[in-house]
Nucleic acid binder design. Structure first.
Lengths: 107, 107
DNA sequence: CAGCATCCTCAACGATACTG
DNA sequence: CAGTATCGTTGAGGATGCTG
């Protein structure tokens, strides 16, 4: 993990820096049950631009939360999946999701 | 709750918008077991400026995650605490914290 | 298909000083 | 004590077009 954590004042700060940002939570979440290709991710994470998708995937990879697997084929094929560390995050992203769902209804 | 959620593509997105930002997680966390005054929060959330503290507290209050209680005394006294909705978030902020702690050690 | 390269905007965050 | 008020910065994110 070579990603620049600017300076975490505590573990909460640190964790939020690693899965904060506009798309990281969503990307980890859609990867929860398997492998997805770049284009599939692009469709799954509605509204993301190629630039942000690539950039976010790189950060997640540098943070060792996901793995990038390249198949040497034509046309190109790249699959992304969670690492064990990334999988550990799924339960509470799920909790957050439930919480968010409930909130969206009651507001 | 009148806070502007720009446009949530999904519940994960929505949840991250409400507790994202640089200090929200930390503030909710330090409020987990009771009431804290403005000055106590300022000391607990190391590195935060008065401006950011005030601003973040206002957002959390507008989001109905915390409650602001003013005592009409001299000198002034204001206490902040979690709402029930805010308390629901504590368990998984705790999980994130544990995860973050473990990560900080192994890196 | 899976990206990269540029340019640009804006709002989150910061520093500092002041106040009821 | 518990905030406001200004001003300044910067980098995350967006738009668009191009490529191996």
């Amino acid at each position: 993990m070579k990603n620049k954590i600017k300076k975490a004042h505590c573990a909460v700060d640190y964790a939020f820096q690693r899965i904060g940002g506009k798309y990281k939570g969503r990307i980890l979440w859609v990867l929860r049950d398997g492998f997805l290709r770049y284009g599939e991710l692009k469709r799954a994470v509605v509204g993301i631009t190629p630039k942000m998708l690539t950039q976010t995937l790189k950060e997640l990879e540098a943070d060792e939360l996901i793995v990038r697997k390249v198949y040497l084929e034509v046309p190109p094929k790249v699959e992304y999946s969670l690492t064990d560390t990334g999988k550990e995050l799924i339960p509470f992203i799920g909790q957050m999701r439930s919480w968010g769902e409930k909130q969206m209804l009651t507001n």
